[in-house]
Design a protein around this nucleic acid. Sequence first.
DNA 1: TTACATTTATACAAGCAGTATAATGAAAAT
DNA 2: ATTTTCATTATACTGCTTGTATAAATGTAA
Lengths: 298, 298
Amino acid sequence: MKNRRQNVIDTAHKLFIEKGYQATSIQDILDGSGISKGTFYNYFPSKGELFIAIFRSFYKRIRHDREKLLEGQDSADIEIFIKQLELQMMGNKQSKLLILIEEVRVSNDEELKQFINQILLLSIRWMHGRFLDIFGEGNKPYLLDCVIIFHSMMTHMNHFNHRANAVTKPEIEIIRYCMNRIIQTVDEVAKSKEQILDPELIHTWFPQFENNLYPCHNNLLKATAELKTAIHTTFPCGEHRTRAIELVDFIQDELMQSDTPRRFLIESLLLSLKNHYSEQVQTYMENFEESINACLVQ
Amino acid sequence: MKNRRQNVIDTAHKLFIEKGYQATSIQDILDGSGISKGTFYNYFPSKGELFIAIFRSFYKRIRHDREKLLEGQDSADIEIFIKQLELQMMGNKQSKLLILIEEVRVSNDEELKQFINQILLLSIRWMHGRFLDIFGEGNKPYLLDCVIIFHSMMTHMNHFNHRANAVTKPEIEIIRYCMNRIIQTVDEVAKSKEQILDPELIHTWFPQFENNLYPCHNNLLKATAELKTAIHTTFPCGEHRTRAIELVDFIQDELMQSDTPRRFLIESLLLSLKNHYSEQVQTYMENFEESINACLVQ
DNA sequence: TTACATTTATACAAGCAGTATAATGAAAAT
DNA sequence: ATTTTCATTATACTGCTTGTATAAATGTAA
């Protein structure tokens, strides 16, 4: 049953938050979720894979919401970026994912370590893309440095802020503080032309141009975003447009959130989508369909 | 034998660097250093305490050298601070202590975690003291924020710099880059009066006013520094003064670097020190002697 | 009812940190 | 020269870990 598996994931997540990843034994999870060892290893090949499953089920939603905030907005608007960061911070706060990642990042499990490493790099890469939106291509040579500074600054200020149990400031204040600092820093390094890390490094970190939780999802994300933008610009605001966006969103969610996407659902929805909207946004629709198929064969 | 113990420490350090702390089993250390399990647990009560022993034998020297750089210099001079940072970075680079700390920081061993945590806080506190020297009391309300930013910036820029295997910049360049950034930042937050963390927090992190690898060492460090400054200002430059400084240094080293300081040596040296120099710097000498005794009873 | 898949209980292997103990050896005190 | 003392060794043991293997029990769909 799907439900039992999800129940194990939830129980394990709770235990990990309480006691930490390493300190939680598989026996604890067995006792907590009331299954036998055989069932556990039927669901997950290892403890590490269980962690990855937990991570996926949370992080994908955060990322999805984050992209939703950008939809049809000016990508250079700093306020949108701040909202995205706040969303991410809140998500991490309740799921304690960042704390768990810190622990797992240095564990014994080599596969797990690589997964986490990938996640951190993806985060850097996303931020770098947003910095490019905000600060413009002209500042590109200095933006990788700035992203790393910003990322570490946010992480640590947040960490110490939570440790200062007496008076913790709200997350948004930390974000604005760090944002103010980095705006100045970008300006400054661009003027003095100081550079430590070449932004081209990002490409060497992701050699095959695309990497993701699942590789095929990157194409899907891109195709979805483009299609949605096209729909936004092509159709007037109204029920018609909203319906299209909802359909596209649902298909993306089903493919990315579920471990076993329901093929019949997706194919049926795609068909009706094509019937109603294909003429005006044909090329985007074709890309969309292609990337869907790539996800389905996987 | 003292030698055998040190040999175990060195072997373990090498193994930890090669394979990591958790991945190195006690059996590995036994095989590597050619001792039996009984002897190991005779030397160290646990694997965690062995790590602490490794850490102490390295970190104390780094800290000692770091303070030596400041001796008789202007503490507000940024160049001295940069030299101190470079020294620390180099020491960490060869001993890989920072990497090991990252691993141990989230291990299962609660005692070990607390020790590492203490070390990180000590590092923050030291830096905060130096920032006060450099940027002045006037900027104090903003310096804890800035120290945390600076610390995390240095750590991460350094980390990604080493990962960029193609072209890694020399450490000193990272330091200067971060220094340039933080100078601007201090200026900026002082102007806009933005504060996240109250510097008074440092006192709550160290409730009993003093904490250290060994608590008594803090007093000793303070007493030594004051005595040396007094000697510097009281006696003219020359062999006489140099000899006094050497004596004081030797006593401090013997007390802090060795696990079993040789009492007869220290007492004899202290006596000759008192005979030759006591009149001019009496109060400092008395403090010095007092803190020595505190270390010896421990 | 039959056939198949999932689940369970249980025993097991190989590894870990740390404890306990009797035997060995070598220097130090008598 | 003999006895005492103490560090060291080899070895077995406890209790924990992740993960494997297997036969019996249970549920589920044809």
